[in-house]
Amino acid sequence: TFVEFNGKKVEYPTPEAAEKAAKKLAKKLNLKVTKKNGNYKLE
């Protein structure tokens, strides 16, 4: 499962880990999380 932000793509071993990381990053970077095709994107 990938988390995409600032043009970077980071892969996580589980969807749970990706979701957790996405939410944490979104909060830190003041972005919102969108889920697309099972992957997460911060914008």
Rank of each mutant, 00 (worst) to 15 (best):
T1C: 13
T1G: 07
T1N: 11
T1F: 15
T1A: 11
T1L: 06
T1V: 13
F2T: 10
F2G: 03
F2M: 07
F2W: 14
F2Q: 04
F2H: 06
V3R: 00
V3C: 05
V3T: 01
V3L: 07
V3M: 04
V3N: 01
V3S: 01
V3K: 00
V3Y: 03
E4Q: 06
E4I: 12
E4R: 03
E4M: 09
E4T: 07
F5E: 00
F5H: 06
F5R: 02
F5C: 07
F5I: 07
F5Q: 00
F5L: 07
F5M: 05
F5A: 03
N6E: 09
N6F: 14
N6T: 03
N6D: 08
G7C: 11
G7P: 00
G7K: 06
G7A: 04
G7S: 05
G7Y: 05
K8W: 15
K8C: 15
K8V: 13
K8F: 13
K8R: 13
K8H: 13
K8P: 01
K8S: 08
K8T: 10
K9C: 15
K9T: 10
K9G: 04
K9S: 10
V10G: 03
V10T: 11
V10N: 06
E11W: 15
E11T: 13
E11F: 15
E11N: 11
E11I: 14
E11P: 10
E11M: 15
E11D: 07
Y12A: 01
Y12M: 03
Y12P: 01
Y12C: 04
Y12I: 02
Y12L: 03
Y12S: 00
Y12W: 05
P13F: 06
P13H: 08
P13D: 10
P13K: 11
P13S: 11
P13W: 06
P13Y: 07
T14V: 03
T14E: 03
T14Y: 06
T14D: 07
T14S: 10
T14N: 10
P15T: 09
P15A: 12
P15G: 07
P15D: 11
P15L: 07
P15N: 09
P15Q: 12
E16K: 11
E16D: 09
E16V: 08
E16S: 09
A17K: 09
A17S: 09
A17F: 05
A17G: 06
A17M: 12
A17H: 07
A17I: 09
A18N: 00
A18C: 03
A18T: 02
A18W: 01
A18Y: 01
A18G: 04
A18I: 01
E19A: 11
E19V: 06
E19F: 15
E19R: 12
E19Y: 15
E19L: 15
K20I: 12
K20Y: 12
K20S: 10
K20N: 10
K20A: 13
K20G: 06
K20D: 10
K20E: 12
A21H: 05
A21V: 07
A21K: 03
A21M: 08
A21T: 04
A21S: 06
A21L: 04
A21W: 07
A21G: 05
A21D: 03
A21E: 06
A21N: 04
A21Y: 08
A22G: 02
A22D: 00
A22Q: 01
A22C: 05
A22I: 07
A22R: 01
A22W: 03
A22N: 00
A22Y: 02
K23M: 15
K23L: 15
K23W: 14
K23D: 08
K23H: 14
K24W: 15
K24V: 12
K24Q: 13
K24L: 13
K24M: 14
L25Q: 03
L25A: 04
L25R: 02
L25G: 01
L25C: 10
A26G: 06
A26P: 00
A26M: 04
A26V: 02
A26D: 01
K27R: 12
K27F: 10
K27N: 09
K27L: 12
K27W: 09
K27P: 00
K27E: 10
K28E: 11
K28G: 06
K28F: 11
K28L: 14
K28Y: 11
K28H: 11
L29V: 03
L29N: 05
N30T: 05
N30M: 08
N30K: 11
N30L: 06
N30I: 04
L31M: 12
L31V: 05
L31K: 03
L31Y: 05
L31G: 02
L31S: 03
L31T: 03
L31P: 00
K32C: 14
K32Y: 08
K32E: 06
V33E: 01
V33F: 06
V33W: 08
V33G: 01
V33R: 02
T34R: 08
T34P: 00
T34F: 10
T34D: 05
T34A: 06
K35V: 14
K35H: 09
K35G: 05
K35R: 12
K35I: 15
K35M: 14
K35S: 08
K35N: 08
K35L: 15
K36H: 14
K36S: 14
K36F: 14
K36D: 14
K36G: 07
K36I: 15
N37T: 04
N37P: 03
N37R: 06
N37W: 06
N37S: 07
N37D: 14
G38K: 05
G38M: 04
G38P: 02
G38A: 05
G38V: 02
G38Y: 04
G38I: 02
N39W: 09
N39Y: 11
N39L: 10
N39M: 12
N39V: 14
N39A: 10
N39I: 14
N39H: 14
N39C: 13
Y40E: 02
Y40Q: 02
Y40K: 02
Y40A: 01
Y40C: 02
K41T: 14
K41P: 01
K41N: 09
K41M: 15
K41W: 14
L42I: 11
L42G: 01
L42Y: 01
L42D: 01
L42Q: 01
L42K: 02
L42H: 02
E43R: 06
E43M: 10
E43V: 14
E43G: 06
